[in-house]
Design a protein around this nucleic acid. Structure first.
Lengths: 108, 108
DNA sequence: CCTGGTACTCGGTATCACCAAGTACCACTA
DNA sequence: TAGTGGTACTTGGTGATACCGAGTACCAGG
């Protein structure tokens, strides 16, 4: 399945929020997680730009820790604003999917 | 519900395809249809750019007809390529929603 | 050493929806 | 007959987002 990229616009950031929200983790691992979830062609560069944005928008708390097998990792955790943003994301997701499913059912 | 715009990226075009696929129709009516479906802040300009793109990509057949209460309408119908594109869109949609729902369930 | 896996950064590009303003056609009304 | 409002399409520019590619750096094992 390819060419998903355009459809992920706006949702990928929410996915990253969800992942961070369930466990404090770092960019490289998030990328792997997304890949194994089925978003195979999401690459590191994309995830890092999202993480930078989250940080810039004050939704996460960042902690740098040594890795042992590579450069130090930047661990991300949600703060209150981040949790709120995550809830908003899921609300929007529900809304959109319900409308589109209705459209698909031929709802008129 | 606002701020849906970014999340609609890539899906709005599919919605328009679906609407056209179910009935030959025109831009203004498509906008109204999307609005009543719950995509309240989708405006005409947006729909027209999508229609132009569909036409440019050879997914639709266009017929101009007089309106009676305004300027002539451009009616859009799917051609074979358009129907194929629509099927692809739904396949992608299924794929993405299933993955994201899995993520939401805490699937790990 | 040197290859390969881990881990982050940065500059540029393409796509897509939005916005704003404009054109134009018609019916109704004052 | 001038004005208003609804219908209908066009166009040029903007902003957000994900992608791509190249680069830096650290470490372990052969």
């Amino acid at each position: 399945m390819d060419g998903l990229t355009e459809m992920l616009k706006g949702t990928l950031e929410g996915c990253v929020l969800e992942i961070i929200g369930s466990e404090e983790t770092y960019g490289y691992a998030i990328t792997r997680r997304l890949n194994e979830l089925g978003f195979a062609d999401v690459v590191e560069g994309t995830v890092y730009t999202i993480l930078l944005r989250l940080e810039k928008n004050g939704l996460v708390q960042v902690t740098k820790r040594p890795s042992g097998l590579g450069p130090p990792r930047k661990f991300y955790a949600l703060n209150d604003a981040g949790r709120e943003e995550l809830a908003t994301f899921w609300a929007k997701w529900e809304y959109i999917t319900s409308r589109i499913d209705k459209l698909k059912e031929g709802g008129r």
